[in-house]
Simulated scan of single mutants.
Amino acid sequence: MDYLFIKNMHIGMAYLSITLFIFRSVLSVSGSSLLQHKLLKILQHIIDTLLLIFAILLTIIIQQYPFVNGWLTAKLIALFAYIIVGTIAIKRGKTAVIRFWASIFAIAIFAYIYGATKAHHALSWLAIM
């Protein structure tokens, strides 16, 4: 397994995932019927599955694991929060206002995850400063 390839694929999938999430969030808040397009639903699942596969491969390659290394544990917990808040943003939020704020919170959680990755620290961006 080539470390740089796996890392770059993981990063690429993360960028694609958040970009598609933001697009779908805009559709959700605006009440667009395009949100129900089958391709958008399938594409998000494919990208997120590849993101997770590359994440698992990276943990094996760098030999750092959740519940052993704090920053990866923090990322995993934040990932679960992102998924929960993201489902509110896309489909479970009862009103456009709830979906909007859930979208903002989900993007903030994603930013935290990204910062934890860059810093290799649970304090995320605060550890870099």
Rank of each mutant, 00 (worst) to 15 (best):
D2N: 15
K38D: 15
A119G: 09
I90C: 13
L72Q: 08
L76A: 15
M9I: 10
R99N: 09
H37G: 05
H37K: 15
H120C: 03
L40M: 11
T73N: 00
D48H: 10
L27F: 08
W101Q: 02
L40C: 10
I113A: 04
T19C: 05
K118M: 10
R24W: 06
L57I: 06
G115Q: 09
T95C: 12
A78M: 06
H37N: 15
S17W: 04
A74E: 10
F67G: 03
L39H: 12
I46P: 01
I83R: 11
I56Y: 01
I11Y: 00
I113C: 03
F105D: 00
I47S: 11
L126P: 03
I77C: 02
L27K: 03
Q64L: 06
L51A: 00
Q63T: 08
Q64M: 12
A119W: 14
A81F: 15
G86V: 15
H37R: 13
A119T: 13
Q44V: 14
I113P: 01
D2M: 05
Y15K: 07
I42Q: 14
I47V: 14
I113E: 05
Y65L: 13
W101A: 03
F80R: 08
S33E: 15
L123N: 10
T95D: 06
T87N: 13
S32T: 00
W71L: 08
Y3R: 07
L20V: 07
F80T: 12
R92H: 13
M1H: 02
L50R: 03
F67H: 09
V29G: 11
L50K: 05
A127P: 01
T117G: 15
S17H: 01
L27I: 12
L50Q: 07
I113N: 03
L40I: 12
F105Y: 08
I107K: 01
N8C: 10
N69R: 06
I56K: 02
G93T: 09
W101L: 11
M1D: 04
K118C: 09
L34C: 04
L16N: 01
S32H: 03
F100S: 05
M13Q: 00
W125I: 14
S32I: 01
K38V: 14
F54C: 13
I77S: 03
I83G: 07
L16I: 10
Y82V: 08
V68L: 12
I90P: 14
N69V: 15
A119Y: 07
T49V: 03
V68Y: 13
I83A: 11
